[in-house]
Amino acid sequence: MIEVTNLRKEFSLSRQQRKELNTTDSKAVAVNGISFTCQPGRIFSLLGPNGAGKTTTMRMLSTIFKPSDGSIKISGIDVSKNPREARKKIGFLTGSTGLYARLTPNELIQYFADLYDIPKNVCAQRKEKLYTLLDMHEFQGKRIGKLSTGMKQKVSICRTMIHDPEVVVFDEPTSGLDVITAENIIKLIRDCKAEGKTVIFSSHIMSEVDLLCDDIAIIHKGNLLYNGTMGDFRENMEAPNLTAEFIRIVNASKLENA
């Protein structure tokens, strides 16, 4: 389970950044006191236009960034107080996730298994299960740099799941991928849900959100505009479809702030 309470993140602005943003403020607020909860066995979608604060929120959930204020609890563990314990519970996958091109999938998976301190026999079992599931046996010994995009994505999925995380964070996981590779990710997200894991993912592709999500939150300029179940969202929609409703909510927020 993920519990986010009054989460806030500020970044200091350099002189050049202040010039680019045309502001005199020394700090920029990326996330402004948002709260939400993601339940196990459910898929929570975090939506927002570019620069809304989705990736910053995801990075705080994954302990890459420290919150400026507020709290995040992953399976009851406060990520600010005990980030290393929290990390053991999290799997993190992004569309821009890179892999070590000079290693083979076997070497990479073993490396991450070692970093998560997984016993050798447990690692071997999990590896076998994931390799079979993702059909990775054929290229497990080839250098990652020589693999196709789809193969690389499978390696990324395997890397994300090797420590069997309770919470899986997907930040635009299908961004820039072909249909077949994107389908692998969709399948993984569904499998995670079926296994009772807590899943949070952000996407710009509304059809994916419509297809997968149980809960939804919309953020814009760091502020939470909507938080509720997908059922409630559909029921209360003023626009004819999900995309139009999303645009309507974001535009309404822009008008309010203007």
Binding site: S62, I64, R87, G98
Partner: peptide, 15 residues
């Protein structure tokens, strides 16, 4: 690592 995007995965491990 930063350019290739691999550092993020490393920072999410319990190290």
């Amino acid at each position: 690592e930063k350019e290739r995007g691999t550092i993020e995965t490393l920072l999410t491990t319990p190290v």
